[in-house]
Design a protein around this nucleic acid. Structure first.
Lengths: 235, 235
DNA sequence: GAGTGGTCTAGACCACGAG
DNA sequence: TCGTGGTCTAGACCACTCA
């Protein structure tokens, strides 16, 4: 074991973590200022800030410049179901921005289309209440775009109906600075990045989606035999 | 934009990053000591260390206490294929430790067995050369354990053959300190955590696996109609 | 023991938010 | 303007690696 003497920041983080989980510190509440906390734990401010950084990476607190550090509400975990059928929660609002663009670089390869071929992008951001929840960029060849419409779930759907095969690649990484600010998460909080590519019977790519789900509030589930009840039945 | 004045650590990280990607700093090479780098960039050592921490979280460098900071070899990304058929690379060595234990808490619920019911754990660590690559803990009810044997892939397999349904839950998070030291990765490097539960025709759980894949070197792929060619054909 | 990274200190100064 | 968090400094001391 390398850690015979636990570092101060970990013991402080542990203390605050238990105070949060036992409810002594409630959701939405503001922590004492960093100066006060540093004095309380008898450490310097950088050390205290290192402790808070650990909690921030776990999604337990939110730092707001100029205001303070706040206990995050324990967010309901949302579950992304693989295989093209994303069950969506009526309590999540979705905002969508549609943009036309032309295929280049990475996107061109993903959709297997010619360079500069016309695409339509749907930029979808889901919100739970007023806090952003997940981010999706969906790309469709423009000649297929009219077939896409907002389904009852609030997400674009349509091309999936014609697709015969969906291939989803899942990676874990830290968010880009843009993603972190869009989702209002710490840049130290890991995200689940899912690239979903749907092809039709002729092997044409009819849709590619880049999803970014904050790791503290989202799971993805894949089953070999998805049942129709596979929606949001998490504990 | 919040970042009108880029912080010192980011500009230093950017500089080192381009030196790595352009090959001015080669894989395996040791960086100058932190004191030297701090002097070179005219910053204090904590600031320089913050810059290195960014590169560490991207998996670009490896910090070795008492020796120095090293450029990581660009690791081949390995692909975990969902659905119970993990294609394995002959260049990856697997070490397995078998332990008997009894079901409790989280594990009990996962396997849907009675408390203290006997289980067998397979702790599998894959190595690429001498560096650890991935970590898997596989749990099987002990009465099924004799059926498990090392397949040609080097991984335990057997119960999957009798399973009819595999459900895999994927999350992104930071590694626990234990996982970070086992995999020799930064505790700031995101990992992909996959919980795979296989059930047989009677809905009995025949196997539960907890996989941890470092985000800088692993993807997971799930397809609706997996083909037999779905093995390691990544770009 | 020499050299390295790991942790921590006690401040300084800047940027943001609210009155 | 005041209180907050964000960044940085210059150095101390400890732990680890290797000769």
């Amino acid at each position: 074991m390398t850690r015979s003497v636990p570092s101060r920041r970990h013991t402080i983080a542990d203390d605050l973590r238990t105070q949060i989980s036992t409810g002594r510190l409630k959701a939405g509440e503001r922590l004492p200022s960093e100066t006060q906390l540093a004095a309380h734990y008898k450490v310097s401010t950088p050390t205290l800030r290192n402790a808070l950084a650990l909690l921030q990476a776990e999604g337990l607190i939110e730092k707001v410049h100029g205001k303070g550090n706040f206990i995050r509400s324990p967010l309901r975990r949302i579950t992304y179901a693989g295989g093209g059928r994303t069950p969506f929660d009526p309590t999540l609002q979705v905002s969508i921005r549609t943009t036309n663009l032309r295929a280049r670089g990475h996107l061109r390869a993903l959709l297997r289309v010619a360079s500069n071929s016309p695409l339509t992008e749907f930029l979808c951001i889901t919100h739970e209440g007023k806090s952003p929840h997940s981010l999706a960029r969906i790309y469709v060849p423009r000649d297929l775009a009219p077939a896409v419409q907002l389904g009852s779930s609030g997400w674009p759907q349509g091309t999936e109906a014609t697709s015969t095969r969906i291939r989803e690649t899942v990676t874990a990484r830290l968010p880009t600075p843009e993603e972190a600010s869009t989702l209002r998460i710490s840049s130290a909080l890991a995200v689940l990045a899912i690239t979903s590519v749907a092809t039709d019977a002729t092997d044409r790519v009819v849709e590619a989606a880049l999803l970014v789900l904050p790791g503290d509030r989202a799971d993805a589930v894949f089953t070999t035999h998805p049942t129709s009840e596979e929606r949001g039945t998490e504990g």
